[in-house]
Design a protein around this nucleic acid. Structure first.
Lengths: 319, 319
DNA sequence: TGAAATCGTGAGAGCGCTCTCATGGTGATC
DNA sequence: GATCACCATGAGAGCGCTCTCACGATTTCA
């Protein structure tokens, strides 16, 4: 039995006799043989691993359950395909450079990139180094040339706003997300579209940064600027939780006086008091979709440039 | 300039002249050279990567911010050492077997294992296949032969209980964590020690599973069994949040009627209403400590078998 | 029955690196 | 000035696998 035949069997090549195949399989099982990945990579030129890159500071990464959900979804798909998922964090310019160098050196077959900010050129640089890349969230530039998976932020925001309108609210404010991220921009756009379609005027817009503290400050600002507000659409659940605190602190009642809708449906949304009505993103499914797109690209199969997943309104106690 | 000399420079070997070193470095920078990891691994026999294995079902992994914190801590240390972190999930027997096979095949230089249950032999099997392993949490068996990093569960539980005693509470109940995990056992033991030291009798013990639902059910059970309870030590924050719900549902007041202390200090603890008093574990530091121990072991340096990190009582509004 | 096509198998090169060993040059020692 | 030790360097083997190519056996067709 030659090494070549054994290799053929283990790689699943077709042109091997049944007899030889069984012999190899038995022998492999007996010695609990595991092929050496390094040797295989060396000759095939593929690393059999995928980078999961979070382009975010550790602080935000740590406090945001969103990433864990994406990681979960991606890991499932990658592991099923027999590849390994290499987890990486790179927030600074320098860390970006190092990652590009690393990836371009053939250490990974592709990259899943999360939480890109502003006009970051990271994906373009990876692609120009022949590292297939799939992003989470539509990039602010060259969205027509990069692969990405996103949820329907515009539609979700519009859905939330329409729901508030439908339940009789008329002075509907919003607290935005960071405007250097697509999700922040799109959720504002959806809100404005729904308001315009209903012929309602918009109270002043307050800006947040997807955090509790910023939501609380923004809501206090809104209440001071326009006491007639009877509803608020917050661009994230954490923002909404902050807004609820400000509402209570101002002596107003959540729901009775001011309805609140969030976005994301993180675990906290259900735990909040009162339980938060919100727009659910299919986070794990987004992670799976990203990984599937990337595997398609690596295999050379045609893959859609963009994948936008539907969202869903979860009615609880705040609206 | 020979390949050998270039290799020496890039690996940081000492016996190279200043002149040759600079020449190599300049040339490498010019062509943006990145050494091929597969080729290096093939000859050194080291994979330059570390497995981060969560021995938990995806559902629990997904809902528990604990893992994200550990991942964060471990990733920092591993990346700084120039290694890569391979993220893996394995909850079933079959997945365990596959992981052992994979790791024993030299695909990783060591493993960080989280959330071991019962008398799982996974770490022993890894060690006997020469895969250095460090666990999070003291294992239930052979704790004197395995490397692990833990927080001071006994001390933290005692601290919480003593604090309740010190604030005048006398009928202090507990809701435990799963008793097939060390953290669950130890937190119960610390509670019982503190109670015994103060000469107080213990109300009936209720068992939980670190989840909101189990905490709520357990608390309802406790209130029915002994209405005189004036405090409860819950073995996790989620359990405590469930307990608070049961207290409110029974028409009692948190703090005024029944004080509540949790364990973990997850983000939800601060967000809960009222804000939860709890015992904080230094999660990211535990992740760092695990990674550091593992790197020491791989380098052949002496490393302590066990590392127990101190916890801290965070006073908020529930006790 | 002979030539051509088909198929399973083995031999052997080579992926890019590290590491041992041999070599030649330099400085120290007697 | 001869000998030795030491150090920087180069040559070359080999890590474990894949993959091409050649070969012999079998089948197919004229």
């Amino acid at each position: 039995m030659s090494r070549a035949t054994a290799s053929r069997v283990l790689r699943g090549a077709s042109n091997v006799s049944e007899q030889a195949r069984n012999a190899v399989l038995d022998a492999a099982a007996e010695i609990s043989y595991a092929p050496n990945r390094a040797a295989r990579s060396l000759v095939t030129g593929r690393s059999e691993s995928i980078a999961f890159l979070v382009a975010e500071t550790e602080d935000r990464l740590f406090s945001d359950p969103f990433f864990l959900g994406m990681l979960r979804g991606a890991q499932t798909v990658i592991a099923t395909a027999g590849l390994q998922l290499v987890f990486t964090v790179a927030s600074t310019e320098d860390e970006h450079r190092r990652f590009i160098h690393y990836a371009a050196g053939g250490h990974v077959d592709g990259a899943l990139v999360l939480s890109l900010h502003g006009r970051d050129q990271l994906p373009q640089q990876l692609e120009s180094n022949r590292v297939p890349t799939v992003l989470s969230g539509r990039p602010l530039t060259e969205a027509d040339r990069l692969y990405f998976v996103d949820s329907d932020n515009v539609g979700g925001a519009a859905m939330a706003t329409e729901y508030l309108i439908g339940s009789g609210r008329r002075r509907i404010a919003t607290i935005t997300g960071p405007q250097d991220m697509c999700a922040g921009q799109d959720r504002l756009a959806g809100y404005q579209q729904a308001l315009a379609a209903a012929g309602l005027s918009a109270p002043p817009v307050a800006h947040g940064r997807f955090s509790i503290a910023s939501g609380q400050a923004a809501m206090a600002e809104l209440l001071a600027a326009d006491p007639s507000i009877d509803a608020v659409f917050a661009a994230s659940d954490l923002t909404a939780i902050g807004a609820m605190r400000a509402i209570v602190a101002a002596g107003r009642r959540v729901f009775d006086d001011i309805a609140v809708v969030g976005f994301d449906d993180i675990g906290d949304a259900e735990l909040a008091h009162p339980a938060l009505t919100t727009v659910r993103q299919p986070i794990a499914e987004m992670g799976r979709a990203m990984a599937n797109r990337l595997l398609q690209r690596i295999a050379g199969e045609p893959a859609p440039l963009q994948t936008v997943l539907p969202v869903e309104l979860i009615r609880r106690e705040t609206a």
